[in-house]
Design a protein around this nucleic acid. Structure first.
Lengths: 233, 233
DNA sequence: CCAAAAGTGTTGTTGATACACCCATGT
DNA sequence: ACATGGGTGTATCAACAACACTTTTGG
């Protein structure tokens, strides 16, 4: 776009924020981390984790920074959703937000003390309360996006611990896609992709036959990803 | 996100723009409309069609407005790509742009006189020159997005005239996806979807057997779209 | 009659689906 | 011994790829 000084004397925008939908997978259910803000006009209401985009950072960097402040994690898997721009999405101000979704492994996760967050809590995907601003819309959009992306690339692995069983993986897909899968057929298909590496380890402390553990292999993924593959189940 | 007055006294952002990748399909090749801006520091350089996001409009509305100003068209098919936020994408200013891509049917299309655009020209997808700012990046991203979306929903129809032949449609998919398709198998698959309505009309003035014309049926699409379908070819 | 594109038919292979069944382990 | 989940095998069916073939039309 052409820049003309006069165009921007009065910016039409009061600011840009980042809002993050943080997904995790816990005991067969997909959950989202919501926070109560400690300051501002929305104290006490639940919403997505968010913050202002700073002048010298990209939106990706801002999202990583905001997530780091809350969780202490670095290099979280995240993807931009889109910009949410309804002029009425925030009253009295013109604030555009850039939505992100991130997939975290619950085991790594650890909420840090934070000035801006009063409380944080995991909510099951079908038990989401009313959220501030357009955060319900952002969340709904992120679910659609997640369901789509999960069919095209093995991003779901980011929700699991490093070592996992095939059935855990299957339950993950069932939960995200909202479908039921056949154990036998799922095994065949996922193993046939050659994307998993079988470990010489088994589950511990389970009250039934211990399942073999697998891990996701980045190397193999990179090789396969060039041809593109299909995660339709 | 929490709003605090002090946070936004000095907005970190000089403004938000909209940039549109305009696709069309012409004689078996996918093309993009590029413009030369008539004003500002980038006079004479090719770039995407763009403009400022105004205070009282959503990004979708802004994109429709900007497209209307250039083409005279209303209700163009468009989809947001994402926000492009690299702090260095524009020198000396902090301008975030929201990318869009749109699919237009070349027959409807008609460039209007415009104050801000000096010239507009269609470029084949593999003959794109160097563009201003990060517009090459936006264009590359839009191509990826188009290739993805075209596999999941019949959006490609927006690039064709209302009545078309099966082979035209096949060539469209070949061009977008960069693959070769088998005539017979393509026919079977697309007709099997029941998405097309055969018309009682044939091609005119062709120097070979005239092909039957089809149209895309919105009604049927809506019925089918609920179950979701696969456009992998 | 020939070129060029439209349109049909056939066949082998692959992969999804729907089951039934056996295995290992803790209580 | 039985409950619980882990893991294997198989028969059927639908979809796809490859390719050969026939039809229509203008020149």
């Amino acid at each position: 776009m052409t820049l003309k000084t006069t165009d921007i004397d009065k910016p039409a925008i009061d600011g840009i924020t980042i809002d993050c939908v943080i997904f995790s997978f816990n005991k067969e259910s997909l959950e989202v981390l919501l926070v109560q803000h400690a300051q501002g006009e929305s104290v006490g209401q639940w919403g997505l984790l968010g913050g202002w985009l700073k002048k010298e950072e990209s939106a990706d960097d801002a999202a990583q920074r905001i997530l780091h402040e809350l969780t202490g994690l670095e290099n979280i898997y995240l993807e931009q959703l889109k910009a949410f721009t309804d002029p009425k999405r925030v009253i009295e101000r013109r604030v555009v937000t850039i939505g992100y979704y991130t997939l975290v492994n619950r085991e790594d996760y650890n909420i840090e003390a934070s000035l801006s967050v009063r409380e944080a809590k995991w909510y099951k995907i079908n038990e989401i309360p009313n959220l501030i601003f357009d955060h319900n819309e952002i969340l709904d959009f992120s679910l659609l996006q997640l369901r789509n992306r999960v069919r095209q690339a093995p991003i779901g692995f980011n929700l699991l611990p490093e070592k996992f069983t095939l059935l855990q993986l299957m339950h993950l897909y069932e939960e995200i896609l909202g479908i039921e899968l056949d154990k036998s057929n799922f095994r065949r298909k996922i193993l046939h992709m050659k994307l998993l590496v079988a470990l010489d380890e088994k589950q511990q402390d389970v009250s039934h036959r211990a399942a073999k553990l697998y891990k996701f292999d980045d190397e193999i993924y990179k090789k396969l990803t060039e041809k593109g593959f299909n995660f339709e189940f």
